[in-house]
Computed example of a mutant assay.
Amino acid sequence: MSRSLRVAFAGTPEFAAGHLRALLDSRHEIALVLTQPDRPAGRGRQLTPSPVKALALEHALPVHQPERLKEPADQAPLVEADIDVLVVVAYGLILPRAVLDLPRLGAINVHASLLPRWRGAAPIQRAIEARDARSGITLMAMDEGLDTGDMLLVRETPIDEHTTAATLHDRLAELGSETLIEGLDRLAAGELPATPQPGDGVTYAAKVSKAEAELDFSRAADELAARVRAFNPVPVAWTRLGEERLRIWEAVAEPRAATDSATAPGTLLPGPTDALRIACGHGVLRVTTAQLPGGRPMPIQQLMHNRRHLHGAGMRLGRHS
């Protein structure tokens, strides 16, 4: 059996915490945990530790929370930790060259895409939005670029018409944890070769903005259905229902019937009461789960019982002139 490694772990959200749990269950030693400073959260805006910090404290691991890592004083705990490798998972801070050079075996990153596709902040959402057939995990040797380092391990998982950002997040968190431990074991044994990323196929996954979540029914229904899945559970797709916002949690695309072909985008079409059928620029968006202000997500049949005017075929949703 190969030797254990002395590891520093850098990560912040729940996705990263899952990887820290896997590392805790491995034979490798965690010398230090880095995570972002506590942030205000909830209605009371109380300072709240990140999921990674909460897990680290639960296991009595040393925690370092610098605002940045540019100054020697901020880097000092890493220097003192005397580590073999730095593991980075959704940390959220830029790591300067001085930090990347500290570990004896370098820094490795768990990235939630099949690099070089979807470098950047929101690879899970962008893969679903683009209707990719697959996603996965890339274990990468870190350099100073934005997700440009050499690939160490790649593992794939499919995306289908039912995959949401929530379900893909959870699947990739599990796959990433398995890939990380496999990679560390192979690194310890000296059996983890690096492969440069291809020059072709590079795309960037920009952070998702709340403004993107408003649906434009002049677009194709299959495009909007993908956005609904990509923005579930954050920021959640929505449309205007009079003066209210209707948040759309689940929807699929359907072809338009010949009788609906001339209907303006955003118009509610007649149909069964278990869905809202909304005319789009091409096709129909069939909404099956939605949420009204002050309520919770619910099946459309239940929502219609509360708001009977939603039965009315011919009313229009969204922005229109």
Score class of each variant (00 low, 15 high):
89 V>L: 08
118 W>R: 08
138 T>D: 02
92 G>Q: 09
104 R>E: 09
87 V>P: 09
108 I>L: 15
68 R>I: 00
110 V>Y: 02
79 V>A: 14
71 E>K: 00
134 R>C: 12
95 L>H: 05
107 A>P: 03
86 L>D: 11
80 E>Q: 13
95 L>W: 10
110 V>I: 15
121 A>F: 00
99 V>P: 01
128 I>V: 15
97 R>V: 04
82 D>A: 15
92 G>A: 07
125 Q>T: 08
93 L>Q: 15
148 T>S: 15
137 I>A: 14
106 G>T: 10
74 D>V: 03
83 I>W: 00
146 L>A: 09
76 A>E: 12
72 P>T: 12
111 H>M: 08
71 E>A: 01
131 R>S: 15
94 I>D: 03
129 E>G: 11
100 L>I: 00
128 I>A: 12
137 I>S: 11
88 V>Y: 06
140 M>D: 11
101 D>L: 02
98 A>I: 02
143 D>T: 08
145 G>P: 06
100 L>T: 06
97 R>H: 13
76 A>R: 07
142 M>F: 13
87 V>G: 03
140 M>N: 06
136 G>F: 10
118 W>H: 14
135 S>E: 13
94 I>H: 03
118 W>C: 04
138 T>C: 09
144 E>D: 08
103 P>D: 13
147 D>Y: 07
83 I>N: 07
84 D>V: 13
